[in-house]
């Protein structure tokens, strides 16, 4: 793990408002995405994050704050 499970959880939680607001912001620029597309983008982003967190290069140096 690159970051602790708690840290991962917090990052995912903070991503949610960004994903929710993303749709509104894009609509402002005349790019409309549907709810399903937003959910899909969200799932991909969270999936990528989890992969990044779970498969580290080395496991020796845990960051501070666990």
């Amino acid at each position: 793990m690159r970051i602790s499970r708690a840290g991962l959880l917090v990052v995912i939680a903070i991503m949610i408002p960004i994903l929710v607001e993303l749709r509104t912001v894009l609509a402002y620029f005349s790019v409309s995405i549907s709810v399903m597309e937003t959910v899909l983008i969200g799932a991909l982003a969270v999936g990528a994050l989890v992969l990044w967190a779970v498969f580290p290069s080395t496991d020796t140096n845990r960051p501070n704050g666990e």
């Binding site: 970051i3 602790s4 840290g7 917090v10 960051p63 501070n64 704050g65 666990e66």
Partner: peptide
Amino acid sequence: RGGTGYFGWLKALPWR
């Protein structure tokens, strides 16, 4: 707690 960098310090906070 040992945090460094412009934003890197955020990682050093006790998120658990």
